[in-house]
Design a protein around this nucleic acid. Structure first.
Length: 424
RNA sequence: GGCGCCUUGGCCGAGUGGUUAGGCAUGGGUCUGCAAAACCCAGUACACCGGUUCGACUCCGGUAGGCGCCUCCA
């Protein structure tokens, strides 16, 4: 099994099973309903864990939730804690409805404050950080290798709003003093305040796994500064950190102009799930390589839906011994190439094999065939009789009636009879 | 200004220095009372301009267009 590593810019082989493979994937900041783009790292992480387990690995996934930061303060002045709690529940509910199960742990930043504070204390003690007026900043100049992950040149990084408290504009906050209007804060050696974003992940990852783990994932937009800074913090303490960094590509097509017709301007995961169903969402993501950007829209969703129907039809026909598990392994073991795997699955006709593969990706429901309501089955039987007696006008009328109820009659030749199938 | 990525047939989307990706849609056919499903056949793609090479969609350079990030966006 090999994966592309952002840090080394090349493919890297995972240790042989059982590993372990410990994965930490950055989760959302909870201040609103998660959008469809937020679903990608969750899905990639869950699928990867699932595939690794199928390959005999001892794989675990930790997915954090950032439940304290400026966005949350801004979204709910004075009531940010309530919003964060509610939005966390939304996230768990919406990702849960993907039907992939849940990560092994979902640590919250607000529940990890002691570890975060300890981490910062060590950085201060070793000279990698400094406290100023209740803030604590990481001293980027203390890390000669800074920029190793993102390949940013520190001297070229654009300066944001100047902050006179910083020694160097590149320095970033580890701890921020409590400000008026911020309703969540904790005691610390530097006074009341709250943690910076990057240190949360360093602390939570170490809490979960210790200083070394195999894979750190997240959206491509997190490479800089978030992951660059996490890495700097951990290396500063002489710790190793993630061996392989995986960054999923972003979703396009979610902005004004090309807004999805079916979803209006609401591209929340909730709305997409309610409108298209979980299988469509999953197959949409399955069809694109995790590292590549992908356009989101009605057209691709429709295509995913059509493909699902094709797979269901395979289960509606007799199983044939066509398919080879090794083909799936070859595709997925090579940088987790799900579109290649999809092509493989399209060639399979063996129900047992397909079911086994789909189960890994939360799509085992494709094998479930819906039973038609008895009244429709009755109509279909009457149509069969009419047809057998060459009363085709009546047979067609009954077929239309069944169609109006949302089902489709398919005549089957081999064991002579018919099949009732819900229309997609 | 800096770092990095992308551009494949109507659409989505893999991949490789020389062989059919796959899917969706479309047209034709087989099957069917007619359909549906299934199966068969058809399309022969790789932004543009140079270069390297016996040979490039695949490597190198440039151009155009698109995208991400540049201190709290997955």
């Amino acid at each position: 099994m090999r994966l592309y590593n952002t840090l080394s810019r090349r493919m890297e082989e995972l240790p042989p099973p059982p590993g372990p493979v410990r994965m930490y994937f950055c989760g959302p900041t909870v201040y609103q309903r998660a959008h469809i783009g937020n679903a990608r790292p969750f899905i990639v992480g869950m699928w990867l864990r699932s595939w690794l387990r199928a390959r005999g690995y001892d794989a675990t996934l930790v997915h954090n939730i950032t439940d304290v930061n400026d966005k949350i303060y801004d979204a709910a002045p004075g009531k940010s804690a309530e919003l964060a709690a509610r939005a966390t529940d939304w996230y768990l509910e919406d990702t849960g409805d993907l039907g992939l199960g849940m990560p092994d742990a979902l640590p919250r930043a607000t529940e990890s404050i002691p570890s975060i504070v300890r981490f910062i204390e060590q950085l201060v003690a070793t000279g990698h950080a400094y406290a100023v007026e209740g803030d604590v900043y990481f001293r980027v100049a203390s890390d000669p290798g800074y920029g190793r992950l993102s390949r940013q040149r520190p001297d070229q990084v654009e300066e944001q709003e100047p902050n006179p408290l910083k020694e160097d504009p590149r320095d970033f906050a580890l701890w921020k003093a409590n400000k008026p209007g911020e309703d969540t804060s904790w005691d610390s050696p530097w006074g009341r305040g709250r943690p910076g974003w990057h240190i949360e992940c360093s602390a939570m990852a170490e809490d979960a796994f210790g200083p070394v783990f195999e894979i750190h994932g997240g959206g491509l937009d997190l490479v800089f500064p978030h992951h660059e800074n996490e890495l700097a913090q951990s290396l500063a303490l002489g710790h190793d950190f993630a061996r392989i960094w995986t960054h999923n590509g972003m979703l396009g097509g979610m902005d004004g102009e090309k807004m999805s017709k079916s979803l209006g301007n609401d591209v929340s995961l909730r709305n997409v799930l309610d409108t298209w169903g979980r299988e469509v969402v999953l197959l949409f993501f399955f069809g694109a390589h995790w590292r590549k950007p992908v356009e989101f829209g009605d057209d691709v969703l429709e295509q995913a839906q059509a493909q699902l129907e094709g797979f269901r039809n395979v289960f509606r026909s007799p199983s044939e011994r066509v398919g080879d598990w090794a083909e799936l392994e070859a595709a997925l073991d090579d940088d987790f190439n799900t579109p290649e795997a999809l092509a493989v699955l399209h060639g399979w006709r063996d129900h047992e094999l397909l079911r086994r593969a789909f189960a890994i990706f939360g799509l085992e429901s494709l094998a479930d065939l819906e039973e038609a309501p008895t009244d429709l089955a009755e109509l279909a039987a009457r149509r069969r009789d009419a047809r057998d007696s060459k009363n085709f006008a009546e047979a067609d009328r009954l077929r239309d009636e069944i169609a109006a109820a949302g089902w489709e009659v398919r005549d089957v030749a081999d064991p002579p009879g018919f099949q009732l199938v819900p229309r997609p």
